[in-house]
Design a protein around this nucleic acid. Structure first.
Length: 604
RNA sequence: GGCCCGGUGGUGUAGCCUGGUUUAACACACCGCCCUGUCAAGGCGGAGAUCGCCGGUUCAAAUCCGGUCCGGGUCGCCA
C-alpha cells in the first residue's frame, strides 16, 4: 500500500503517530517559508505542513505541488498549534508534519475547480466526469446512493427476500415506452429489447415459487428525459407471493420510512404516512403524487357558481365541467404582470384560462367584505358567490383565489401544477421534511381519446378490485385497481399492484385493451401459459433508485447528479462520444444496412 | 416534434433591451515575484476571450434580424 491511513481518518488520538498518506492536492497555501497542503483521498482531507528547516527536501517538492497533483507524503501526526484548529474540518484538530514527499503524478490544470461545489456548465461536467466526481457534493451523492442501496439489500435480506438477476436482453413488446433494440447476429433481422422493467420476469419468478424476490434492476426506456427521469435508470424491483394489497403497501411504506430515517436522520418524516384514494388526491391536491408538505388545497366551486350570472362559470358547470380553485395567501396585491404570467402558466398546464379573485386586505374579514374590496376580471360574480368560494377554499382578505373552469381531470391537474408553483413561490414546502403519502384505488383504465380505446393506468397485469371484475364488461372506466403508489414531496417514489395470476382473467384484460388473440399469444403467450401451471396470487412494487437519491440528497439538482456517468438530453455521452457509427464489418455481421440519409441531414 | 431559458478568457458572470464613449469589465483559477500559521491565505505584477457557428441589416454588431448547432427546463411522450 502506498498509504498507511486515509487522510480523513486522522484525529487527535493519532498524535505522535508516523503515517504515510497518498491522495490529491486539494488546495495549497504557500507562505514562502512555510507550505500548507490540503491532501484529499476518498476518506476526506487533512492539512499537511511542509517546513523548510525540518524537511528541506519535502519542502522543495511541496513548493511544486499544484491542484490535483497526486502525491505520497510521509510524516508525523501532531495537534495543531494553539488557536489554529479548524472546526470546519473533521481532521481540523490535527495536521501532518511532512518529512518526505513524492509526486506520484502531476496534473494539468483542471478545466473547472474540483475543490468546491460551484456551478459548472453541465456539458463540461459530463465531458470531464471523472473530475466532476471528485467534487464534494457528487462524492456525497454517490455515497448516499450506495448507502441507500445497501440499506435496501440488508432490509430485504433480513425479511427473507432473495435478490435475483434477470436478463438485459429480452423480448420487445411494443407496449408502453419505446424499446431500446439490440440486433441479433445469429438471427439476422430479429432484435432483442432492453427491459423497460423486469415486470414479466418477476411474475414468472413468482410462478417459479420464489415467493420473495427483489432486484436492483437496470431499466431502459427510449423516451425523452426530464429533470427527474432518464432513459437508463435503476429501480428497486420487488415481488411477493401470497400477499394482499395492504401487505405490500405496509412493506413499501416501512421500507422507505426506515430508509429515509436511517440515511437522513436530520429530516422530518411525518408519521403515520397518510393514505389517499386517487380520487381524493386529485380532488384535494390535483395530483396523484401530491406534495403534502403544505396546504393550498383545492376546493370545488361548481355548486356555488352553477347558477351564477358569470356565464363562463355557470356555462362550464351546465356542460358537465367543473369550477375549482385554491387560495394563495397574501397575494391579493400581486402586480398585473405577474397575474398575467399565472394565466400563461395555467394555459401551459392545459387550462383554457385562469380567473383570479383578489380580496383586499382592508376588508378585514369575509363578513365585512364588499365588492369594493374585490378585484377580479369576473365582474358578474355576486358578492355572496365570492364569499362562498372564499370560505370553501379558506381564503381571507389579503389572499388571491386562483380558479380554473373546464373539464376534469384536466382542470384539477392544472390547479395541481399551479398549487406546486405557488407552494414554491411562497416558500411553503419545508426543505427539511420528506412527506410520504400512499395513493390507492386508481382507476384500472383510462380512455385514450386519440386512439379511441382503453389504456391501462398502471399496466395490463394489474388486478382490479375482486368485486369489480363484473364491471369490466359494462363500464371499464369505473373499475378500480389494486394498484398503489408511494409519493414523497411531489415525486413518485414507488408504485405497484396486486397482479392478475389467472389466464382467463389476464386474457379478459387484454381483450378490453384491444389486443387481438393472436397478438396476445405472440407477445404474452409465455406468461399466460405460466399462469396455467399453478401461479400463486402475487403482487409487488418498483421504485426508482435515482429519484430516491435525489429526494434524499439536498445536493442533487437533477437526477443526473445521483449517478456516476450520464448523458445529455439527446442521449449523447460527451465523455465516450456515444453513440457513434460502427464499422461496415460490424453491420455486415448483423445483416444490417443503413438507410440513406436525406440530403439535408447529409450536410449537417 | 412544440415552447421557454442559456451559449462572452480556463471557470462563473456583467455588458445585449436602448448598436459607437470597451483597449469587452469583474471574481476565481493560471503564470511570476514577495511572504513561517494559513485553511475561500495574503500582497504586487502578468498572460489570457475578435463574444457558439453561418448569413443579413448598418458607416459601425457581443449588442438588431434570420437560420443553425449545442446545453438545460418543459409540453407531447414515459402501458
Amino acid at each position: 500500500m502506498l498509504k498507511s491511513v486515509g487522510c480523513g481518518s486522522l484525529r487527535l488520538e493519532h498524535a505522535g503517530q508516523s503515517v504515510s498518506l497518498a491522495g490529491w492536492v486539494h488546495r495549497r497555501r504557500d507562505h514562502g517559508g512555510l507550505v500548507f497542503i490540503d491532501l484529499r483521498d476518498s476518506t476526506g482531507l487533512v492539512q499537511l505542513v511542509f517546513h523548510p528547516e525540518e524537511a528541506p527536501d519535502a519542502f522543495n517538492v511541496a513548493e511544486r505541488f499544484r491542484a490535483e497533483w497526486v502525491a505520497q507524503v510521509t510524516g508525523t501526526v501532531r495537534p495543531r498549534p494553539e488557536g489554529t484548529a479548524n472546526p470546519n474540518l473533521d481532521t481540523g484538530d490535527v495536521e501532518v508534519l511532512a518529512s518526505a514527499a513524492v509526486v506520484l503524478n502531476p496534473s494539468r490544470t483542471p478545466p473547472f475547480d474540483v475543490s468546491q461545489d460551484a456551478p459548472v456548465d453541465e456539458l463540461l461536467r459530463m465531458r470531464y466526469r471523472y473530475l466532476d466526481l471528485r467534487r464534494p457534493f457528487m462524492r456525497e451523492n454517490l455515497r448516499m446512493r450506495h448507502r441507500a442501496v445497501k440499506f435496501i439489500r440488508d432490509y430485504l435480506d433480513e425479511r427473507g427476500f432473495v435478490e435475483i438477476e434477470t436478463p438485459i436482453l429480452i423480448k420487445s413488446t411494443p407496449e408502453g415506452a419505446r424499446d431500446f433494440l439490440v440486433p441479433s447476429r445469429i438471427h439476422q433481422g430479429s432484435f432483442y429489447a432492453l427491459p423497460q422493467s423486469p415486470q414479466q420476469l418477476k411474475q414468472l419468478l413468482m410462478v417459479a415459487g420464489t415467493d420473495r424476490y427483489f432486484q436492483i434492476a437496470r431499466c431502459f426506456r427510449d423516451e425523452d428525459p426530464r429533470a427527474d427521469r432518464l432513459p437508463e435508470f435503476t429501480q428497486l424491483d420487488l415481488e411477493m407471493a401470497f400477499v394482499d394489497r395492504d401487505d405490500i403497501v405496509a412493506l413499501m411504506t416501512d421500507l422507505y420510512t426506515d430508509l429515509i430515517r436511517t440515511i437522513r436522520p436530520d429530516k422530518r418524516v411525518p408519521l403515520p404516512v397518510p393514505h389517499f384514494t386517487f380520487e381524493e388526491a386529485m380532488a384535494r391536491f390535483g395530483s396523484d403524487k401530491p406534495d403534502i408538505r403544505f396546504g393550498l388545497e383545492i376546493a370545488d366551486f361548481s355548486p356555488i357558481v352553477e347558477a351564477s350570472e358569470f356565464k363562463v362559470f355557470s356555462g362550464v358547470v351546465a356542460n358537465g365541467g367543473v369550477v375549482k380553485g385554491f387560495a394563495a395567501p397574501g397575494l391579493a396585491s400581486i402586480p398585473r404582470r405577474q397575474a398575467d404570467e399565472l394565466i400563461e402558466l395555467a394555459k401551459r398546464y392545459g387550462a383554457h384560462g385562469l380567473v383570479t379573485i383578489a380580496l383586499d386586505e382592508a376588508a378585514g374579514s369575509l363578513d365585512t367584505l364588499t365588492l369594493d374590496h374585490v378585484r377580479t376580471p369576473a365582474r358578474a360574480l355576486a358578492l355572496d358567490e365570492i364569499r362562498a368560494m372564499a370560505a370553501a377554499c379558506g381564503a381571507a382578505p389579503g389572499d388571491l383565489i386562483l380558479i380554473v373552469a373546464g373539464e376534469d381531470p384536466q382542470s384539477s391537474s392544472t390547479l395541481g401544477q399551479l398549487r406546486l408553483h405557488m407552494g414554491e413561490r411562497l416558500g411553503l414546502a419545508d426543505p427539511d421534511t420528506i412527506a410520504l403519502c400512499v395513493i390507492t384505488d386508481f382507476p384500472l383504465f383510462d380512455w385514450n381519446e386519440n386512439e379511441q380505446r382503453w389504456d391501462s393506468v398502471h399496466h395490463p397485469f394489474t388486478s382490479p378490485f375482486e368485486d369489480h371484475w363484473e364491471r369490466l364488461e359494462v363500464d371499464p372506466g369505473s373499475a378500480l385497481s389494486r394498484a398503489y403508489d408511494l409519493a414523497a414531496n411531489g415525486y413518485e417514489l414507488a408504485g405497484g399492484s396486486i397482479r392478475i395470476h389467472e389466464r382467463a382473467r389476464q386474457e379478459a384484460i387484454f381483450r378490453i385493451l384491444g389486443h387481438y388473440a393472436e397478438n396476445v399469444e405472440e407477445q404474452f403467450g409465455h406468461l399466460l401459459e405460466a399462469f396455467e401451471y399453478g401461479a400463486p396470487p402475487h403482487g409487488g412494487f418498483a421504485g426508482g433508485i435515482d429519484r430516491l437519491v435525489m429526494i434524499l440528497s439536498d445536493k442533487a439538482d437533477s437526477i443526473r447528479d445521483t449517478i456516476a456517468f450520464t448523458k445529455t438530453q439527446i442521449g449523447v455521452d460527451p465523455l465516450f462520444g456515444a453513440p457513434s457509427p460502427v464499422d461496415q464489418a460490424q453491420l455486415d455481421q448483423l445483416g444490417l444496412a443503413l438507410a440513406p440519409r436525406s440530403p439535408d441531414t447529409e450536410t449537417q
